[in-house]
C-alpha cells in the first residue's frame, strides 16, 4: 500500500496520497421539500481506501451506500465534510478522470450500439479516437460481447448490460473502479467471469471499491470491508482480521441429559438437528473438555468442525438485524429502509 500517485500539474505536497478514496466527516442530510424534515443519509463518514485494495462497502437498503458513492463522484453534494480521490478534492472534475464507475440501476442510452456506447463514454473520459477504437475491440472481447458490438443495446439482456457497463467503466484504464452492485442480474457463470476480470485488475494495482448487497460476493472478493448502518460507519477493517473469530462445532448422537447440560454450560449455542445435537464452543480448549465429557458419557461423536464466523454473522451482529439473511447471503434490508423512503420526494 505504499505506492503513491500524482497528477500532472498537481502540487506534489498536497496532491499525493496513499489512499484512492479518503473521506473526512462526510455527511449528507436530505430535507423534505415542504415540511423541511431532515433525513440523514450519511452521517459524518470518515473512511480510507488504500491504493490497490479491494474494498467492499456493505449495508442494508437505505444505509447510505449509494449516497456515499454519489458524493465521491459529485452526483450528490455533501452537506458537510470532504472527500478526495487520490488526494484530490472530489468536487474537482479532474479528480474523476482516473475513475471508472458502474452505477446501480444504470440506464444506458438504448439508441447506442455496444461499441457506440463505449466510444461515447470513452470520448467523455478524454480518450483519443484511435485509443477508443483499439480499446473497444479489447474490452468487448474481455467481457464476452465481441459479436455484439454492432447491436443496439436495447436488445441486450440484463447480464449483457452489466458486462457492457463494466467494459464502459474499464474503457479508459482507470486506477479506481467504483462498482455499485456489479453482478446484479448476472447469472452465476457471468458472476464468476466478472470476478475473474476484477481479480486480473487488482494484480495490476487498480483499486476496486465494491458496493454490494451480496455478502458472499464481498467476502470472497474483497480484502477490506466497511459496514454502514443508518448512515454511520459501524465497522471497518481487513477482511482477514474480521473473519478470525473462531469456534468449534461438535455434532453428537446418543448424548444423555447430564452430559448435555454440562456441555451447554461451555457452548455458545446448542441446537437439536434431527436425531443429533450440535454444540458450538468458542475455543479449542473448551472443545477438548466437551469431547472428554461426551466420551465419558458414551455419546457418539459424529463430527468436530472448527469454524470462523462468516461475514454474514458479523453483518447481522453489527447491524442488529435478526432477519435471516437468506440462502443467497443477501443483506436483509426491509426493516432499514428509512433513508431510502425518505429519499423519495426530498431535496437537499
Amino acid at each position: 500500500m505504499s505506492s503513491r500517485c500524482a497528477f500532472k500539474g498537481e502540487n506534489s505536497e498536497s496532491m499525493t496520497s496513499d489512499y484512492a478514496i479518503e473521506t473526512d466527516g462526510l455527511q449528507k442530510i436530505y430535507r423534505t421539500r415542504f415540511t423541511g424534515r431532515a433525513f440523514t443519509a450519511v452521517a459524518g463518514l470518515t473512511l480510507r481506501v488504500p491504493i490497490g485494495s479491494k474494498f467492499g462497502l456493505l449495508g442494508a437498503n437505505g444505509a447510505g451506500k449509494t449516497t456515499f458513492v454519489k458524493m465521491l463522484l459529485s452526483a450528490v453534494r455533501p452537506t458537510a465534510g470532504r472527500a478526495s480521490l487520490f488526494g484530490r478534492d472530489a468536487q474537482e472534475e479532474e479528480s474523476r478522470r482516473p475513475v471508472g464507475y458502474l452505477p446501480e440501476n444504470h440506464r444506458f442510452p438504448t439508441y447506442f450500439t455496444g461499441a457506440g456506447m463505449l466510444d461515447f463514454y470513452g470520448a467523455l473520459s478524454g480518450m483519443s479516437a484511435a485509443d477508443r477504437k483499439r480499446r473497444i475491440v479489447e474490452l468487448l472481447e474481455l467481457v464476452g460481447l465481441e459479436t455484439w458490438g454492432d447491436v443496439r443495446i436495447k436488445k441486450y439482456s440484463k447480464g449483457m448490460l452489466q458486462r457492457l457497463g463494466l467494459a464502459q467503466a474499464l474503457m479508459h484504464k482507470p486506477r479506481l473502479l467504483v462498482l455499485d452492485e456489479p453482478t446484479d442480474g448476472v447469472d452465476p457463470a457471468g458472476r464468476r467471469h466478472i470476478r475473474d476480470i476484477l481479480n486480473g485488475l487488482t494484480g495490476a494495482g487498480v483499486t476496486i471499491f465494491l458496493n454490494s448487497h451480496l455478502l458472499s460476493e464481498v467476502e470472497t472478493f474483497c480484502d477490506y470491508v466497511a459496514i454502514l448502518r443508518q448512515g454511520h460507519l459501524a465497522l471497518e477493517g481487513k477482511m482477514s482480521s474480521l473473519l478470525t473469530k473462531q469456534g468449534v462445532v461438535i455434532t453428537v448422537r446418543d448424548v444423555n441429559e447430564q452430559a448435555q447440560r454440562l456441555i451447554a454450560g461451555m457452548a455458545s449455542t446448542t441446537r437439536v438437528v434431527e436425531d443429533a445435537v450440535e454444540f458450538t464452543v468458542p475455543t479449542p480448549l473448551e472443545a477438548n473438555r466437551s469431547i472428554d465429557v461426551l466420551r465419558a458419557a458414551g455419546a457418539t461423536i459424529y463430527s468436530v468442525i472448527p469454524t470462523t464466523s462468516s461475514l454474514e454473522d458479523i453483518f447481522i451482529e453489527i447491524t442488529g438485524s435478526s432477519r435471516n439473511a437468506g440462502a443467497r447471503g443477501e443483506i436483509p434490508g426491509a426493516e432499514e429502509t428509512v433513508a431510502a423512503a425518505a429519499m423519495s420526494g426530498v431535496h437537499q
Binding site: 497528477f7 482516473p98 480518450m127 485509443d131 474481455l142 479508459h172 484504464k173 485488475l201 495490476a204 487498480v206
Partner: peptide, 18 residues
C-alpha cells in the same frame, strides 16, 4: 496526461487522456 496502463488482461498500451 498519460495514465499508466493497469489492465494487463485487456491490453497494455498506455492511453492518452486529453
Amino acid at each position: 496526461q498519460v495514465l499508466r496502463p493497469p489492465l494487463t488482461a485487456a491490453g497494455s498500451q498506455p492511453i492518452h487522456l486529453s
